[in-house]
């Protein structure tokens, strides 16, 4: 499965829910799949998508909050897993697209290949799911809607063969429309 297809599939399944997307290709894929006011594209501050998602989830407990994260991103802020596991937001779904590389910077290796990220999440109180193919992913996403979080979904993805364009919105616009919509 490639990231862009996995993202399209998830977005179709979750509809208009809030998405916080990590910087780099993940935000580009989300923007190009379906731009909407409830998307917060984090274009800088690598590592912090899950922290921003946690802050929103705590203040908006009735809304499902989806974080679209990457392996490089979460490895940069592993402490975030422990904070989320401590505060236990029931409405947080933390999706990690894991390609074992820092793809946006040229495909250098991340440290996710020989470790089990989902086990780290499990030990800090997440419910964990792992997906290798589209059918399985669809079932997990559908199931995650009814489950109590925090939920981690680790999706193994391949290196992309094509790259989507940048997010064509100013940071100010991204923020303002998000704050109005939530």
């Amino acid at each position: 499965m490639n990231r862009s297809d996995a993202i399209k599939l998830i977005i179709k399944e979750i509809g208009n829910e809030v998405i916080i997307s990590a910087n780099g290709f993940i935000s580009r894929d989300v923007f190009n799949a379906k731009d909407k006011n409830t998307n917060f594209y984090m274009i800088g501050s690598m590592g912090l998508a899950s922290s921003i998602g946690l802050g929103i989830a705590l203040k908006k407990p009735k809304k499902k909050i989806y974080v679209f994260d990457g392996d490089g991103n979460i490895l940069m802020n592993l402490g975030s897993l422990t904070s989320i596991g401590t505060l236990k937001p029931k409405n947080l779904v933390h999706i990690i697209f894991d390609n074992n590389i820092h793809e946006s910077t040229g495909g250098q290796p991340s440290n996710s290949k020989d470790i089990r990220l989902e086990q780290i999440a499990k030990i800090v109180n997440y419910k964990i799911f792992k997906s290798q193919n589209p059918n399985q992913l669809l079932k997990i996403i559908s199931k995650s809607k009814k489950l109590t979080g925090p939920i981690l979904i680790l999706i193994h993805i391949e290196k992309s063969t094509s790259v989507n364009g940048r997010v064509l919105l100013s940071p100010k616009k991204i923020k303002e429309r998000f704050m109005k919509s939530i």
Partner: peptide, 13 residues
């Protein structure tokens, strides 16, 4: 940095 990320999420909410 994490603290700023969490607080930013709260402000966005």
């Amino acid at each position: 940095e994490e603290a700023i990320g969490i607080a930013t999420g709260m402000v966005l909410a």
